[in-house]
Simulated scan of single mutants.
Amino acid sequence: MDTARRTPGAPRFLHLAGEQLRWDLLRALAHSDHRVGDLITAVGQPQSLVSYHLRKLRSGGLVTGRRSSADGRDTYYRLDLDRCAELLADTGQGLHPALALVPPTPPAAGSMRGRVLFLCTGNSARSQMAEALLRRRAPHVEIASAGSHPKPLHPNAIAVMREQGIDLSGHHSKHIDEFTGQRFDYVISLCDKVREVCPEFPGHPDLVHWSMPDPSAAGDTPEASYPAFARTADELSTRIGFLLPNLTRTHLTETRRS
Rank of each mutant, 00 (worst) to 15 (best):
R58P: 05
N156S: 06
F179R: 06
T41M: 09
L247G: 04
S124V: 01
D206S: 06
R249K: 13
A159T: 14
A132Y: 07
T255P: 00
Q45F: 10
I188S: 12
A28C: 13
F242G: 03
V43K: 06
P46I: 04
D206Y: 01
L247S: 08
P155D: 12
G114Q: 03
R195G: 01
A98G: 07
L117N: 03
W210N: 02
R135Y: 02
S258P: 02
D74C: 11
G170W: 10
V63C: 01
W23A: 04
S258Q: 14
I166P: 00
Q128A: 14
T75E: 11
D167E: 03
E235A: 05
R5P: 00
F242D: 05
S48H: 00
R73H: 04
V36W: 06
F179M: 11
A233L: 13
L252C: 06
A228F: 06
R66P: 01
C198K: 12
R27N: 09
E19P: 01
D214L: 01
T75P: 00
L168E: 04
H140W: 09
H15L: 09
E178D: 06
S111Q: 02
M212V: 08
A28Y: 12
A109G: 10
M112E: 13
Q182F: 13
A89V: 09
D71S: 12
R22E: 11
R249Y: 08
D38H: 13
I188N: 10
V197C: 07
L244D: 03
L49T: 15
L252V: 12
S51N: 04
L14P: 00
Q93S: 15
E200D: 15
L39R: 02
P46S: 08
C120G: 08
P155R: 07
T3S: 03
G110M: 12
P107V: 09
D214R: 00
A17M: 09
H34V: 03
V141A: 13
P150K: 04
R135C: 03
D177I: 04
S111D: 14
R27I: 14
D90V: 13
Q47S: 09
S51G: 11
R73M: 07
P97T: 04
L25S: 01
T41N: 11
Q93P: 01
D2Y: 10
A138W: 08
